[in-house]
Design a protein around this nucleic acid. Structure first.
Length: 410
RNA sequence: GGAGGAGUACCCAAGUGGCCAAAGGGGGCAGACUGUAAAUCUGUUAGCUCAGCUUUCGGUGGUUCAAAUCCACCCUCCUCCA
């Protein structure tokens, strides 16, 4: 092994906390290591927050280590209190099962699961059949409530309330680590920095029960320079599922990150060499737009593939760069009948889902935020006519950045 | 189980009979300025058949010409006691 993956992760800014920095570095440098990261299926798609963990797994796999992707079909039944200020809604078993399937599909796109190079497990397989008393006697005995309560993730919740259900989450996750240690000789657990206490719990459990050495490492959460969580949009999270967040929107999200966050995102979310990352990240003023284009393209390519990334980039250039009459511009197709029945500008905006209510539409127009074929609409009673169509389509723009191409077919 | 306290729009939070579709802040959206950035400034932020009407202040019912505001019951959360 030429370059130690630990150094790579460190240089790129992934690592937040480690249990034993030197030992971990040594181990990763001299032998293939089996490690795991857990993903609780709380939604039907992974999002960008998960993607950073996936990046880590890819880096590790490339360095010859073996990732275990754990889908938390069992732990999702309980809900992780870490990083939450309020109680989670309990999820139904069917929902969790469905989500777990989606997670599996998405994860298998990023890692090579052939020939045992990576493993996918679901902790429902061992958690759901546990016997309560046995579990308490075998595992529960090793946990000190006093100590757990001093953990940051519980302390914040003591003020707002913490159910016994959630309190057990740490034990379940610790048990996962123990199971994987026994079954796969899994020696490391990685995760987001909010997982630190849970990871420590597992590493300590293994040391106590098995006398073995287990390690943990956490990664920076993706936050903006102002400390806000990244990957959140008004519509919710930035999903990896193209049906939930279109590749175009995904591209645009990264195209529009703050100047201050460009370098961090390039390091964490692309495989570009660090020299290049540093070069792009140090660009100033409007030059930094080049870096943002690279970022948007590279991340979209990783998540959605080259073809989708090309399309997203072409659409962006057509719309913002005044380039060719964009082919892959986001939009929708309606029938001639629909077009004529909704000729009123507000009706068509509503039909296209660009506004949530007519009141919103009136406001937008009154404030000059709606354009049809690049002409500002200033009358809330404006109606579209057939000759607004150019080659059977027209372009509606809302604000500065939201483009929607309407194609009308018979 | 007992004693107190609280539940207001996307979030925080003011409002304790009419002047309340509800102050202020945050967030969002739009405009100006710009680099598809940030900061700043301005407007806006329940719905509709929009200078009028309808629905909204945990829920249900009541008092009143008039209720977010008063009364009754219920639900949820918090604190202290057991």
């Amino acid at each position: 092994m030429s370059v130690n993956v630990f150094d790579v992760l460190k240089e790129r800014g992934f690592i937040a906390q480690t249990t034993h920095e030197d030992e971990i570095r040594d181990m990763l440098g001299k032998e293939p290591v089996t490690f795991y990261i857990g993903f609780d299926p709380t939604a039907d798609s992974l999002h960008v927050g998960h993607f950073i963990q996936i990046m880590v797994m890819m880096h590790m796999q490339q360095a010859g280590h073996r990732p275990i992707a754990l889908v938390g079909g069992g732990t999702a039944m309980v809900g992780d209190p870490s990083g939450r200020t309020d109680m989670r809604k309990m999820m139904t078993i069917d929902t969790i099962r469905h989500n777990a399937e989606s997670f599996k599909k998405q994860l298998s796109r990023f890692l090579d699961f052939s020939e045992g190079k990576a493993v996918m497990v679901n902790n429902a397989d061992w958690l759901l059949d546990l016997n309560y008393v046995e579990f308490l006697r075998e595992i529960g005995v090793h946990f000190s409530v006093n100590r757990m309560l001093t953990a940051e993730c519980f302390r914040s919740r003591l003020e707002r309330g913490l159910s016994f259900l959630e309190f057990n989450y740490m034990l379940m996750q610790s048990y996962d680590f123990l199971m994987l240690y026994r079954k796969y000789n899994c020696k490391m657990q990685l995760g987001g920095d909010d997982q630190w206490s849970n990871i420590l719990g597992g590493a300590e459990l293994i040391r106590r029960v098995e006398g073995g050495s287990a390690y943990g490492m956490t990664f920076t959460l993706l936050t903006t320079s102002e400390g806000k969580k990244m990957g959140k949009t008004e519509a919710g999270a930035l999903w990896l599922d193209p049906a939930k967040t279109s590749p175009y929107d995904f591209y645009q999200y990264w195209r529009n990150v703050d100047d201050a966050d460009v370098m961090k995102c390039l390091a964490l979310l692309t495989f570009l060499p660090m020299d290049e990352v540093r070069r792009l990240g140090s660009l100033k003023d409007e030059k930094i737009n080049e870096a943002k284009k690279v970022l948007a393209y590279e991340v979209t390519k990783l998540v959605h593939g080259r073809e989708e990334a090309d399309k997203a980039r072409a659409a962006a250039e057509a719309l913002f760069g005044g380039g060719g009459a964009g082919a892959e511009v986001p939009g929708s197709t309606i029938s001639m009948v629909q077009f004529r029945e909704n000729a009123n500008i507000i009706d068509i905006l509503l039909l296209l889902g660009l506004i949530p209510s007519k009141g919103e539409g009136r406001r937008l127009i009154q404030q000059g935020g709606i354009y049809v074929n690049d002409e500002r609409i200033d009358d809330i009673g404006h109606t579209l006519a057939d000759n607004d169509l150019k080659d059977g389509s027209l372009m509606i723009r809302k604000g500065k950045k939201v483009y929607h191409k309407v194609t009308v077919k018979d």
